[in-house]
Design a protein around this nucleic acid. Structure first.
Lengths: 244, 244
DNA sequence: ATCGAACTATAAAATTACCGTAAAATCTTG
DNA sequence: CAAGATTTTACGGTAATTTTATAGTTCGAT
């Protein structure tokens, strides 16, 4: 489904410019020439994003934004002719999501539109900031969710904690002790068998073959290493490139 | 909980400036003087937002961003000395969430930081009034009314408070502690049995089968999650819920 | 090469932790 | 006080964790 963008601007040539540019980018397009009509369209058509020009003939831009924010949280990008910091701050704190001063490049406008649509709250399974996203594997500690190849994965608490700890240290070798301390606490930092069982269960759920593990590698006598970042080229013998 | 901001910049005076300004705004502050150290801190401390200066000594800013985006979706605000549109577009499409050219006003920077933190996916869906309207379920805290499938529901005070708290965070996992703290207060934030009983009664009144709950899901050992698919109605053409 | 020590993976049993709910006891509120 | 709300107490069921046990692997010394 194409995202719909509502442009509220009183200058016909700007609207025309937007219509062409946004249309070419594959967005569905709506326009209004004043604030009243803009709010009406916002209410009736529920656009996915609003581009709001300040300095409309019928109403102050800040007031318009406030009216909109009474009932909607749709992302709003504000355009203005002036470049006053005071104004920017006021608008952004008043609920605008982004701000662009004229003259602006159309490429930048479109890039910012994309960002706002991309970061739309609650789009995919809503995720928190602590989320680890490896593409194929997404771990969201705030919601205690794991997605593997798009499918949600059900993990017990210890399983989740171990996977999260390993994934937080992706690429790095982590010792048995550090995992045990992090997940079970100081008192159990030598009970490596706890860890073995959880790792075994994790590999089962990740369909990771323990004889040739793709994700959770065993480092005999030391610990485990979680791998997922696509690190192709690095040949096996080359010296450690990182600062260690 | 104070949000934590990580500043990655090689110029000491900028870092100092940031430390003072952001600290004064009540943010928790972390800093790194190069990309390698920045990525390390991002991984180990999980900041809520990152301010990334381009033109770091050890690594290209775009590369740094890409490395970060391999596993994290923490919001990133990029700072740069140049004001080239090409670069802006590249960064924004590469996963940056906002972009600011030097020289910038500190007020604007802080406003943009606030916007990024405010618009995190999965924030409370409050829209002005306190009423939560999920279609099938309407919760009006002002009048202490609940309607379920059109029928009014009689809830005791604690029942109401718990339901309202869960519904305010719909879709998200809320811990036992947070509900207990919100409804019973700090002193009872470990008395999970209170909560179990209220949830049991709520499910009874919502005819929610606890073995396969539709609305209030249990996350063992952690808390609960309120789910309610929003009404799929709003047909594309005629339905006009707004003013006419 | 063979053996054994140290390590690993995992199945299965035993134990424990946690949940849901009923019912009794206590407290609130009108 | 009386009805209703809340807290306390208790118990059965289920799932997670820990314990126990077994089998396979690696590696070095004999």
């Amino acid at each position: 489904m194409k995202p719909t963008i509502l442009v509220i601007d009183d200058e016909p040539q700007i609207r025309r410019f937007m219509r062409i540019s946004l249309g070419a980018e594959g967005f569905s397009y709506l326009e209004a020439e004043n604030a009243a009509r803009g709010l009406e369209l916002a209410s009736s058509h529920r656009p996915d994003l609003i581009i709001l020009d300040l300095g409309l003939p019928d109403q102050d831009g800040f007031t318009t934004l406030q009216a909109l924010r009474q009932w909607s949280r749709v992302p709003v990008l504000v355009l203005t002719a002036r470049d006053a910091e005071e104004e920017k701050v006021k608008l952004l704190e008043g609920g605008a999501n982004d701000y662009l001063s004229k003259p602006f490049g159309i490429k930048e406008l479109i890039a910012r539109v994309r960002v706002l649509l991309r970061d739309l709250p609650g789009q995919p399974p809503s995720t928190g900031t602590g989320t680890l996203d490896f593409g194929a594997l997404v771990i969201d500690p705030d919601n205690h969710n794991v997605y593997f190849s798009g499918e949600p994965l059900t993990l017990a608490r210890k399983e989740f904690a171990v996977l999260y700890y390993l994934a937080s240290n992706h690429g790095r070798l982590v010792s048995h002790e550090s995992v045990l301390t992090a997940v079970w606490g100081e008192t159990h930092n030598e009970d490596t068998h706890y860890l073995r069982i959880i790792v075994s269960q994790l590999r089962k759920k990740l369909s990771d073959n323990p004889d040739a593990p793709e994700f959770i590698k065993t480092e005999p006598g030391i610990g485990y290493r979680f791998i997922l970042c696509p690190e192709p080229s690095i040949s096996s013998d080359s010296a450690n490139p990182g600062p260690d």
